[in-house]
Design a protein around this nucleic acid. Structure first.
Lengths: 387, 387
DNA sequence: TTCATTTAGTTCACGTTGTAGACTAAATAT
DNA sequence: ATATTTAGTCTACAACGTGAACTAAATGAA
């Protein structure tokens, strides 16, 4: 239900409109903002003034004019005040990033360690250390962290990580083990990486991000908004049925995509002990490895065909391990998509490798808080005092 | 991008809030509305006054009191002014319905005729006759039709019906052949039927509506909003892959759901000439028919498994021919869903037959215009004149 | 150099809308 | 009959955007 609008909400929405216009439209003068937003110059002036005072916008020098008339003063998003913490637990490392309002990475900490089978308490304790360091550093830079988001690989709901096939965890509630002075939220790595690509990658507003790890997840972005389903569990691409009579899957079904293109299946079929080993084999043209990749690509193509028919996707981004395997996967995937979708739709969806690679998840995680501030800056703005 | 809010928009939004609260919350007094919306009594009084004057709300008698204090006057949606036209072209009939703001059917016209292979011009000419009659009748009832929506079976985009497997049509633009004094929009039958179920059926806010005809379409509703994909073509459940090496499909692929559970496949496997014949065979326990239905149900279960994994659905409504076949389909479908989804999610999605049956599409079509008025009543409300 | 022109930004009286609380209306309970 | 309670209206007021006049700062022409 739409909420009632009072004067306060009117102002809050208009602050958002101005801030958002600057965020999307690069540096803009007050006059340009008035034109873009449809508000009058006087209103824009007031709002910009308050946003500058709040440390959310900053004036750059006078706009390079060259043209007649008084040159306007351009404003941009200010990275001076608000920041956000993005956290990630991966199989091979822990990563922490602090982003400011402009999307610039202000602090980045990463610790390589093998988290396979490690106890949640241990891993989260170490993550807390890294996060605290990063927060301290951010504080030294004059930044105010508004919140933190933790990315984990596996289905998540209501703060609980139901299962993490990469780590071997079950029903963990990370916020209980991660004490930080700011609120910590939990979300799925595929969803957050999709948001990372949306906000800090190509900037496309409609796509499916596919995260290939031991499990295969996906994050669906439509019209610039993440789609997360009725209970937040959408995107389980790994269990889309590719062959009903296929091999049994840990989910209880059989012939799921994961049994063809999941990391374990891929390594087994390619006779490689690890992803780097598989990559090396592919690069030296090993037949077994190439065949394994082609088969996985075809299976992925079939699952994506179903996804496109259901969701009307026009762009698919391959992330996780699939980013590195992209040169060997894209052929078979595209072929299947073109063949099976050609009849009904003019062009098959556009396929790309993730632009951000392993950084997507932490960027998306931190971006989530940043974008919440951009979407509702009012709490950070003190109402202008009449002199 | 969020639009700037001026006083006018503030008022427009608050009119919507009040109207919407009455629409959802049954009869409400001004005092109750103030509590529900968070607006003050005086504001609500003004807004309700204007909405009543506009013919969008109506006062019923004094509220049943029995309790202490002055009894409030309840207001309800008024069916006296705004109406909307829902149109449907089906294989076997043309249907037209006029709905008022309360959702009551005020005029209904239906003409049985076989549209298979008929020329678009002929069919749409006849539909125009029916629609004109219905509009005249609505006018006699004092209703003002705000718009019309036409439901057709097949993929639609930008006013063009790309293909209609039921009718044998290709690339038809119905608005060109259907001259009415109000704007006519075009949409997919499965999408509109889903909206019909949402607004005038069970009222669930998250579900997938499956429309089984010669093609198999689907309409996805999430949080009370229809999901239509990047280009409006979402919901092609019929071409979700059920068996990659299966029978070739008219879409160019193979093993699509349609080749297992589409009406033609179903009749062929059940050795029946028509849907009524198949139903008769099923009711007398014919083995071939029962086996055909069970196989179709299992295929549908597999396609829906993929859909649930991708979309996180918790409710599935079977419509179209599947409504009548529900008693024979629900068993196999549920079994497959339970088996394949049991591992990852607590409970498989809830499966039901469509409540509205064949009426869903016209109701959804007309409801679309009605809900547009409910979502933005301001154009119908003249600003109150100070005496 | 000077002044007209152009564009940017600020100021202020005003209009529109929601708010708060006093006030009136209409019921039940004592 | 009168107190109490709840509904609804009325009015002075506050919040915020508007619009036009005004000031500021540039370019270009005389």
């Amino acid at each position: 239900m739409t909420q009632a609008v009072r004067h306060e909400e009117m102002r809050a929405r208009n602050l958002e409109v101005v801030l958002g216009a600057v965020g999307r439209g690069g540096p803009l003068t007050r006059a340009a903002l008035a034109e873009v937003t449809g508000l009058t110059k006087s209103t824009v002036s007031k709002l910009v003034g308050d946003l500058v005072e709040a440390g959310l916008l900053a004036e750059t020098g006078p706009a390079r004019a060259g043209e007649r008339g008084r040159p306007g003063v351009e404003v941009v998003l200010s990275g001076a005040r608000v920041a956000s913490l993005g956290l990630e637990i991966n199989v091979d490392y822990l990563a922490v990033r602090v982003l400011d309002l402009t999307g610039a990475v202000r602090v980045a900490v990463r610790r390589d360690r093998d988290n396979r089978g490690a106890r949640p308490k241990k891993v989260l304790g170490e993550l807390q250390e890294l996060a605290s360091e990063a927060l301290a550093e951010a504080h030294r830079l004059g930044l105010e962290a508004a919140g933190a988001v933790l990315a984990v690989s596996g289905p998540v709901g209501d703060g609980v990580l139901f299962s993490a096939p990469n780590l071997g965890w079950q029903d963990v509630r990370p916020a209980d083990l991660l004490r930080l002075p700011i609120p910590v939220e939990l979300d799925n790595e595929a969803n957050l990486a999709a948001l990372g690509e949306l906000w800090y990658g190509d900037g496309e507003r409609d796509f499916l991000y596919v995260s290939g790890e031991i499990g295969i997840g996906a994050g669906l972005v439509v019209g610039g908004v993440l789609y997360s389903g009725a209970t937040g569990l959408a995107g389980e691409l790994g269990h889309v049925v590719v062959a009903p009579e296929g091999a049994p899957c840990r989910c209880g079904g059989s012939g799921c995509l994961e049994t063809y293109a999941g990391q374990e299946a891929l390594l087994a079929a390619g006779k490689a002990a690890s992803v780097p080993a598989l990559l090396a084999a592919l690069e030296r043209g090993d037949e077994t490895a190439l065949a394994a990749c082609a088969a996985a690509g075809r299976a992925l193509g079939i699952a994506l065909t179903s996804a496109v028919n259901l969701l009307d996707l026009d762009r698919i981004v391959l992330g996780g391990v699939f980013t590195q395997l992209y040169p060997w996967l894209s052929g078979p995937v595209s072929e299947v998509l073109a063949k099976r979708l050609g009849g009904l739709r003019g062009t098959p969806p556009y396929l790309t490798a993730s632009r951000l690679g392993g950084d997507a998840a932490t960027l998306g995680a931190a971006g989530r808080v940043i974008h919440r501030v951009l979407a509702d800056p009012a709490p950070f703005v003190t109402r202008a005092q009449e002199a």
